[in-house]
Simulated assay, not measured.
Amino acid sequence: MKKVHEVLNEKGHDVYSIGPEASVFEALRMMADHEIGALPVLENGRLVGLISERDYARKVILLDRSSRNTPVREIMMARVTCVEPGRTVEECMALMTDKRVRHLPVLEHGKLVGLVSIGDLVKAIIDEQQFIISQLELYIAS
């Protein structure tokens, strides 16, 4: 089973982040510009939260708040489930299912080194299954 660091090596280590005092509108613009669904929230280089499109829908739109006047700090998830690069894709999928989250920041020695989404993990599982199937087909054909 693939490990998180392998998934990051394939998808890239670029991590976009935002500060807690930025507006929700700025966070949404950044997510739209980079076609991502969540942003780690960093304060002085330290992970302090995570903001997602889901947070926006539930904590801004449904409460009739203004995204331009609401700081990220007010709607971000402050208790973030994180993983280390050595965790397997399978372990991460189980953790995401258990915690009901769709994004996992990846920390190495307390420093943010990546972010994996449920889509990244599903892709890794599908790729691995396709490889196994092709190997079995070669074995059967020979």
Rank of each mutant, 00 (worst) to 15 (best):
L63I: 01
M96K: 14
H103Y: 09
I61V: 14
H109T: 15
L104M: 09
V80L: 11
L107G: 03
P71C: 10
V106L: 14
L62W: 07
R79V: 11
G49S: 01
I75K: 10
R100T: 00
H103V: 00
V48C: 00
L50T: 09
V72C: 00
S67K: 14
G49N: 00
V116S: 09
G45R: 05
P71N: 00
M76W: 06
V80D: 05
G45K: 03
E91M: 11
R46A: 10
H109G: 13
R54K: 15
V72M: 02
H109W: 12
I61N: 08
E91T: 02
R100E: 04
D55F: 00
R58W: 07
G114K: 08
V89G: 07
R102W: 05
I51W: 02
H109S: 14
D98H: 12
L62V: 01
V72F: 05
G110A: 03
S66A: 08
N44A: 15
A94E: 08
V60F: 01
R100A: 05
L95R: 09
R100W: 07
G49P: 00
R73D: 12
R102P: 06
I75T: 03
P71V: 01
R79Q: 14
K99Q: 13
V80K: 03
L62T: 04
M76E: 09
L62F: 02
L112A: 12
K59R: 15
L112Y: 14
G45I: 07
V89M: 02
P105Y: 08
L112S: 15
I61A: 14
R68K: 13
E74G: 05
